[in-house]
Design a protein around this nucleic acid. Structure first.
Length: 273
DNA sequence: CCTTATGCCTGAATGC
DNA sequence: TGCATTCAGGCATAAG
């Protein structure tokens, strides 16, 4: 499920292929992929536009077009943005095909949760889903003090806060669990109970896990692929996610699996406190 | 402020 | 083996 490292990898693998290319045709196989009023206008808005730049904000891809339009793409669970140099028969669950003046961009999504919206660029800063996002965890501005400030007074469990995109933006279930394991912190800990030493470890762990995830081109636990259709390899390095009831790689004890904050959460009670 | 539930989806895994 | 149920989960939204 594309989280920050996966979306960043899609951005990087896509940028070289499509930056500067022009969208010459749109084939909308499932109108729900662009949703609402856009179903009627998406084609008119996007056809003929040139792709100027691809940015990322949290788990969102921002595809800047000319003439004041931006595509906001979110993969949610199973979305894929795939680039093909040659015209290629669409794989199953392909909902949108953008024919470029050089190559083809397919949006496919088995679960149909993902979306691509066309938004006027000037409205991007006030677009609600983006405006509420907390800091980028890999930005220089995201210091340990910023993290501490955003967790003060929050007696909710740590897992819920790490998944809360308004606290910090980009973690999902995989990297939240991996971060807490690396920091040696139990997911059920009240977020305001961390000592400054623990806060420092958490901050360090979040950044290290995300950087390692990007380094590995993301986690292909099941569906995720980059823009070239390639799997990432971070699944080989997961310590806890998807390993419930298996032995801890660090201490050998049984990893616990529990629903916390509504999500399956895996942790080691021996290594995390 | 907070938490929990629901809907959106399909396919893999599990239960009987 | 086959059919039915559960589970996976990001995020918007509603309800408690």
């Amino acid at each position: 499920m594309p989280e920050l490292p996966e979306v960043e990898t899609i951005r990087r693998t896509l940028a070289g292929h499509v930056t500067g290319k022009r969208i010459i045709d749109i084939d909308l196989l499932w109108p729900g992929a662009v949703r609402g009023w856009q179903e009627h206008n998406f084609r008119d808005i996007v056809k003929g536009r040139q792709i100027e730049e691809i940015e990322r904000r949290a788990k969102y891809l921002l595809i800047r077009l000319d003439q004041g339009w931006t595509l906001i793409a979110h993969m949610r669970m199973t979305g894929r943005l795939l680039y093909f140099l040659q015209a290629t028969p669409p794989e199953r669950h392909t909902h949108l095909i953008m024919t470029l003046d050089h190559g083809h961009l397919h949006f496919a999504d088995q679960r149909k949760f993902g979306r691509i919206l066309a938004i006027p660029t000037k409205e991007i800063p006030i677009w609600p889903s983006l405006a509420i996002l907390g800091p980028e965890p890999l930005a220089a501005e995201f210091t340990v003090d910023v993290l501490a400030e955003r967790l003060t007074g929050k007696k909710t469990n740590l897992k819920a806060k790490l998944l809360d995109q308004t606290v910090l933006a980009g973690l999902g279930n995989i990297y939240a669990d991996e971060s807490m394991f690396r920091a040696g912190l139990l997911p059920e800990r009240p977020a305001n109970s961390l000592t400054s030493e623990e806060m420092r470890r958490l901050h360090q762990a979040i950044q290290a896990v995300l950087r390692a995830g990007i380094e590995s081109m993301g986690t292909s636990f099941r569906d995720y692929r980059d823009a070239n259709g390639e799997k990432g390899s971070f699944q080989e390095f997961l310590q806890v996610y998807g390993r419930g009831d298996q032995p801890c790689r660090r201490c050998g004890q049984h990893l616990e699996k529990q629903k916390i904050a509504g999500r399956t959460t895996v942790f080691c009670r021996h290594c995390q406190h």
